[in-house]
Structures are given as C-alpha cells and as structure tokens.
Amino acid sequence: MSNQYETVFILTPVLSEVQMKEAVKKFRKVLTDNGAEIIHEEDWGLRKLAYPIRKMSNGFYNLIEFTGESKIIDTLEIAYRRDERVIRFLTTRMEKYAVEWAVKKRSGKKPVIADDEPVNVINEKEE
C-alpha cells in the first residue's frame, strides 16, 4: 500500500552549489530507482541552524515529497546515513490533513491567521 511521504534533509554548508545539486540528484535517483514517484521538491537554500550541528551553524535545506511503498524509506535512510554530506534528515508520512495542507500551500499562500497577538499573554508567570 503506497503512502505519501515527505523528507527534509540538511546538507553541510561547505558544499559548492554544484555539489549540493548533485547530492539532491543522488537522493532523487535513490527514490526513483526504488519505484517512488516524486511529487514536489523544494530547496530552501542556505539557512541558519538554531543550534550548531557538528560544529556547523548553517546548512542547505531540501524537501522532497513523494509517494511509494514503505520499504523505500529503509533504503532512503540507509543512503542518508551512508552519505557524510547529510548532517540531518527527517522523513514523515503525510496523513490526510498534511496532504491537504501541502496542496493548499503550493497553490496559494496559506492564509496564516494573524488576527491574534503573541499567545504568551503578559500574565504568564515565570515558573
């Protein structure tokens, strides 16, 4: 039974543009070889990390959305672990609402509810 997955992975910042593209192409190939069908791909480029990972403070973020069998995930994650350029990855299965959200996000800007003020109202006591 094929599910829809989305995987986000971070590449080391020391890579050049070409190497980064090549790494992403490699993981696309791993997916398509195993019968996954890639729906959407995003490249968030170089972003600052919230905390240093392996002494690095920023990294290239990439997202791939695909559908496929569940055994693809094992091979994909093995490929991630083997490749030393990838410093972190997260693969999640997309349930019904996640799929809806992704489609809506791609079609038009999801209206972020801005009607409320920051939630931690003033009377938040420091416990």
């Binding site: 986000v8 971070i10 990390l49 919230a50 905390y51 990972i53 990294g59 972190r88 997260l90």
Partner: peptide, 13 residues
C-alpha cells in the same frame, strides 16, 4: 519537537 530536530527551533535559548 520535529522542528527542533531539524534545527529550525532551538531546544533551549
């Protein structure tokens, strides 16, 4: 917790 894993949010700051 997923965002923290992906270093988008800090664990502690």
């Amino acid at each position: 917790k997923k965002a923290r894993h992906l270093a988008m949010l800090p664990y502690v700051t």
